[in-house]
Design a protein around this nucleic acid. Structure first.
Lengths: 212, 212
DNA sequence: ACCTGAACACCGTTCAAGT
DNA sequence: ACCTGAACACCGTTCAAGT
């Protein structure tokens, strides 16, 4: 086998993540993937939390860099979509980010870029961290919700959705009239459209904070 | 001891949650709290997932009811603040909601009320589920982020914050100029103000969707 | 009907022992 | 320096056995 390095471990961990999901990433399963024993991992990584942090940073490395030429609004919307795309590229990617503090060079670099863009866009200094934080938690929250309880493969995801629809339609309509009549729209996610609606609403709302 | 009922179990589980946090809610610890053995819990609850669902619904029961007389904007903002308050009332409350599908009568009742309010507010039928979903994931995402990695007691939370501040200020300013200069505003959360800013931006953005 | 002891198949992590 | 076996203190869950 190849030599075991930190990078090698993190790459394997992301592979396990994609195959087994967040709960499937165990030190033992990861060691198997690498052809070593679980105890050996502790020669390269302090503990599982550090490993998760490294995974989060590896995911953050896939984020594209900002194009500072474009107008801020377009920039921010594209950045938001790119973040969502990267979070969805790895199974339970949003859970990894949510479970992990925003440290690590790649993640910090992404935050720095966002702060830079917001400053250039004319947001007052004191609101720049607010807007950055809110964009981040909005995106992570959305993808978390969007992918919650969904198995990896698309087939069983669709089966689950059908089940949820049938269940929601069977609720007592006297008590839950809107829930029942909107069941189709509630479970049939159209997540892309919904995300765009949300990020645009949020950015529109932020826009009036700008002084330039 | 008292007779063991489902309600009794859920109440104890919430007590354990507040004391030990999300990861501390184990079947064994909960059984201890009730003065029984872990295996006995399975006479009352299918598995841990069902228990978490019941906990989420018990938390949802604490939500106030909507005041349909007030204008929608005020209504929605108050509802959002109330949800955040309830999520923060129990340690890791947001994690319980995020880990759990939106079933359970109390939670459904809250969603139904929100759908009702949005419909009355004049949102087109097809956007009502979008706005409801987006408000929910925004709030849960915010509180999740806000309370992440925070220990229960306020003292150690403040200690952690000081540490984070010192760490961020020690970053290389050439690479992370905004991160370093905004360190104070980034870690000193002022979460209440930040949440208001966010929910208002989001609701302002939604407002132009209304047709009434 | 409900509780228990014991077991099964897992976890993260430590540590002395090997090379 | 890095890997291993074995152990420790946990998990969720099942099931035959008790009352």
């Amino acid at each position: 086998m190849k030599k075991i390095t930190r990078e090698h471990i993190v790459a394997s961990a992301l592979r396990v993540l994609d195959e087994e999901g967040f709960d499937g990433v165990t030190m033992r399963r990861l060691a198997d993937e690498l052809g070593i024993k679980a105890a050996s991992l502790y020669n390269h990584v302090r503990d599982k939390d550090e490993l998760l942090g490294l995974m989060a940073d590896a995911i953050s490395a896939e984020l594209p860099t900002f194009d500072h030429a474009k107008p801020w609004r377009e920039q921010a919307e594209e950045m938001a979509k790119a973040i969502r795309r990267v979070l969805k590229k790895h199974r339970d990617g949003a859970r990894v980010m949510a479970a992990t503090p925003p440290a690590g060079p790649n993640r910090l670099r992404a935050i720095e870029q966002l702060l830079e863009a917001l400053t250039k866009a004319g947001f007052p200094r004191s609101t720049v961290p607010d807007v950055a934080f809110l964009m981040s938690s909005f995106i992570i929250g959305f993808v978390l919700d969007e992918t919650m309880g969904q198995p990896g493969d698309a087939a069983s995801a669709r089966r689950r959705q059908k089940e949820a629809l049938r269940w929601m339609k069977s609720l007592p309509p006297a008590e839950f009239p809107h829930l029942v009549s909107l069941a189709g729209e509630l479970v049939g996610s159209q997540a892309d459209r919904r995300f765009e609606l949300g990020i645009r609403a949020l950015l529109d709302g932020f826009d009036r904070l700008r002084s330039v």
